[in-house]
Simulated scan of single mutants.
Amino acid sequence: MSGNVEERPERPSEVDGTAHLFRALGKIIKVLRKNAGLSQAEMADATHCSEDLVSSVERGVRTPQPDFLTRADPVVGAGGVLIAAVDDVRDALARARVRHPDWFRDFAEEEAKAVALHYYAVQAVPGLLQTQAYACSLFEHRRPMLDEATIEKRVADRISRQVLFDKWPLPTISFVLEAAVLLRPFGGPEVHREQLLRIRNVAQRRTVDFQIMPQDKAEHPYLDGAFTLLTPKGRREVAYTEIYGHSRLITDPEEVRQHAERYGIIRAQALTKRESLDWIEKLLGER
């Protein structure tokens, strides 16, 4: 699950000043867009993202990711100003990893250093694959309700973990998602489509294995919930679960073996990577 539940309240000290950097950058992007005579919809089309994302970045609700800044710079005629901010944004996102709640921090730190990561998801898209809009929608609709500062901080923390994809050598990474996860249009049509595109883009990488478990399977080896298998450098594989807001890092060899066995069977029953990509493209209406 790797950070999809995150139910426990955070201390005020866990919300730091990093968000101010992103708010200031959002205001700069808004001014540049207006000076370029572009509407939010036109900028979204030119940068291949949703209008909601552009709006949220400008309001400082969502973090402007490095790839967005790189695409946006020539669109708004920034002359390299936004590209110049990419390294600072990447560093800020990397530092955000240490700001996770205590109960999740151990896993987040192990995830960042792991040599192998395997995610099985049954209810929501794994945190490493989530778009800002999807993550924001998850936190906005959870109950009991969260305040805006907490939502902003949790979204930033979750997205910050995705710098893992920029590492080299990249750890071995695989995902298996139950089909129901991607059939739910969480956040509405635009958010859903943007999320599907994000998953497809990551899944197309040669460094990532991605599979979908179809709903028409008559057998299933494990219906108890999501889990992650993680191999720390130089140490034995461990398992991680989140159930009803309670996280657990499992180190007992026999329990870890059981999760690894289940994951192997799930992968054998799931669609292949090519079949999974075709499935997503059909959902997007591109096949």
Rank of each mutant, 00 (worst) to 15 (best):
R200V: 01
G37M: 07
A180C: 11
L32M: 12
L170K: 07
E109L: 15
R33Q: 11
Q269L: 15
G17D: 13
K273I: 04
K273M: 02
L249T: 06
I83K: 14
P214M: 13
G187K: 08
R142V: 10
R8Q: 13
G188Y: 11
D224F: 12
R8L: 13
E261S: 15
P171R: 02
E286S: 10
Q162G: 07
E51I: 03
Y244W: 10
V125G: 00
G234V: 09
G17M: 08
A112C: 07
R71S: 10
F107E: 08
M145F: 06
R99I: 01
I173L: 14
K217G: 07
D147Y: 12
P9T: 10
L229Q: 02
R154S: 01
A84C: 04
T70V: 11
E51F: 03
G127V: 02
Y134I: 04
H118Q: 14
L230V: 08
M213A: 15
R206N: 12
R200G: 00
A46L: 15
L283M: 15
E281R: 14
E219G: 08
R71C: 01
L249M: 14
A133P: 01
L249V: 12
A239D: 06
P232H: 05
V191A: 05
G188W: 11
V202W: 00
R205D: 10
P64S: 02
Q215W: 10
M213S: 14
I280R: 01
I243R: 14
S276M: 09
L21R: 10
A218M: 13
E254P: 00
L283V: 09
A218V: 14
V86L: 02
S13W: 13
V181I: 10
F107V: 05
G264C: 06
A268N: 12
E111M: 10
R193S: 02
A85G: 02
E219I: 15
D224I: 06
T207Y: 01
G3W: 00
E152T: 15
H259I: 06
A180R: 13
V15N: 12
A133C: 11
D45W: 05
E58I: 08
A226V: 07
I173S: 04
L53F: 13
L197N: 05
G188A: 10
D252I: 09
L183H: 07
Q132C: 11
D252M: 11
D73Y: 05
R200S: 03
D157R: 09
L69K: 02
R11L: 15
E237H: 08
R105M: 04
